[in-house]
C-alpha cells in the first residue's frame, strides 16, 4: 500500500525542517565568533593585567610619572626595581597622534571637499583610487619611509637652521602617521559629504551662494557629526598604530612637549617588552598586557563614541 502523497510530503518536510534548524544553529554559532574574539581579548588582557597589578599597584601604573621597566635579575641587585608609570607613554602617544591629526585633518578634509564638491568626475575617478592606494600601503612601509627619508630630512633641516634634532623624533613619526591617515579621513569624510542631500546644495546655490560659501555654511555644518565621527576613528587608529612608531619614534620614555625629541608610545613599549627573550611571569612582560588593556579600553571608548555619532548622522539623511 502506498501512503497518500500528502503524508509523504509532510514526513520529508519534517526532515528538511530539522536539517534547516541545524543549519540555522550553525550559522548562529558562527556569528558568536565575533563576540568570542572580544571576550577573548578582554579576558586574556585582563587576566595578565590582573597578575601585573598584584605586583604593581594600579595607582602607580596609572599616575606614575616614570617608566623604566628594568627589573632586577637577581634579588640582591640594587636600584633596579623598575618603574611602571604609564603617563610618559601616554604623553608620547598623544603627542605623536596630535601631530598626525594636525597633518591629516586639514589635508584629508580639504581633499574630501575638493573631490566631492569641485573635482570633475574624470579627476575623481583617477584621484580616489590613488588615495585608496595610499590607504592600502602597509604600515611597515610607512615606518621604513619615516626612518629612511623623513627623519634624516627633518634632522638635516633642523641642523641647517640650528636645531639639534635626534634621529628618532616625535615629529618624524607624527608626520608620516599623518600621511597614513590622510586617505582614511578623506574617504570617510567623502562618504559623509556625499550623504548630504543634493537639494541642500541646490538651495544654497539657488540663493546665490558661491560653492565655498555653500560648503562652509551649509554642507559642513550639516555633515558636522559625521566628520567628527570619522576624525575620532582616525584618532583611535593613530593611538593604536604600531609599526611607524616602532621604527621611527624611539624608546626614551620621558614626559616632554618638545616634538623634536625622541619619545616612546604605548605600542612601542608593548613591542619592546614582548619581543626577544622573555619570561612569562615577570612584571616586565605582564606590564605589556596592562598597557594593552589600557590601549584597548581607550580606543574602544573612541570607537564606540564615533560609531554612535556616525550612526545617528546616517539616520538623519537616510
Amino acid at each position: 500500500m502506498e501512503p497518500p502523497k500528502t503524508m509523504e510530503l509532510r514526513r520529508t518536510g519534517k526532515l528538511v525542517k530539522l536539517q534547516e534548524q541545524i543549519i540555522i544553529i550553525a550559522l548562529m554559532l558562527c556569528s558568536l565568533a565575533a563576540i568570542l574574539v572580544t571576550v577573548g581579548i578582554v579576558a586574556s588582557l585582563a587576566f595578565e593585567a590582573f597578575q601585573f597589578f598584584q605586583k604593581i599597584p594600579v595607582s602607580e601604573f596609572l599616575f606614575g610619572l616614570e617608566w623604566s621597566p628594568q627589573t632586577a635579575i637577581r634579588d640582591d641587585q640594587v636600584g633596579a626595581s623598575g618603574k611602571f608609570g604609564i603617563l610618559p607613554l601616554l604623553g608620547g602617544t598623544l603627542m605623536i597622534s596630535t601631530i598626525a591629526m594636525a597633518v591629516a585633518t586639514p589635508l584629508g578634509l580639504y581633499s574630501a571637499i575638493y573631490l566631492s564638491e569641485y573635482a570633475k568626475p574624470r579627476t575623481r575617478v583617477w584621484v580616489k583610487p590613488m588615495l585608496e592606494l595610499l590607504a592600502g600601503i602597509p604600515t611597515v612601509v610607512y615606518g621604513f619611509f619615516a626612518a629612511l627619508v623623513v627623519a634624516p630630512l627633518i634632522r638635516s633641516t633642523g641642523s641647517g637652521i640650528g636645531f639639534e634634532i635626534s634621529s628618532e623624533s616625535a615629529l618624524a613619526a607624527g608626520l608620516v602617521m599623518g600621511i597614513m591617515l590622510i586617505p582614511f579621513i578623506s574617504s570617510l569624510s567623502d562618504d559623509v559629504l556625499c550623504a548630504v542631500p543634493k537639494t541642500m546644495r541646490e538651495a544654497s546655490l539657488g540663493l546665490g551662494a558661491t560653492r565655498s560659501e555653500t560648503v562652509k555654511n551649509v554642507i559642513l555644518p550639516a555633515a558636522n557629526a559625521g566628520i567628527i565621527g570619522s576624525l575620532l576613528l582616525a584618532a583611535s587608529r593613530a593611538i593604536g598604530e604600531t609599526m611607524i612608531v616602532v621604527m621611527a619614534a624611539g624608546l626614551s620614555a620621558k614626559l616632554t612637549l618638545n616634538p623634536l625629541e625622541a619619545v616612546t608610545t604605548m605600542t612601542v613599549q608593548i613591542v619592546t617588552l614582548l619581543t626577544g627573550d622573555q619570561e612569562f611571569d615577570s612584571a616586565k612582560t605582564l606590564a605589556a598586557f596592562a598597557i594593552a588593556l589600557f590601549l584597548f579600553v581607550l580606543t574602544m571608548i573612541l570607537n564606540v563614541i564615533s560609531l554612535k555619532i556616525v550612526d545617528r548622522y546616517k539616520t538623519i539623511y537616510a
Binding site: L32, V37, R237, L307
Partner: peptide
C-alpha cells in the same frame, strides 16, 4: 545588536592587541 557593535568595534581595535590575544590564548 551586541554582535553588531562588537563587529564594528573589532574592526577598529589596534592590530597589536590581536597579537597579544594570540600570544596569551593560542601560545599560552
Amino acid at each position: 545588536d551586541l554582535i553588531e557593535i562588537n563587529i564594528n568595534n573589532l574592526a577598529a581595535v589596534p592590530s597589536i592587541v590581536f597579537g597579544l590575544l594570540g600570544l596569551s590564548i593560542f601560545l599560552g
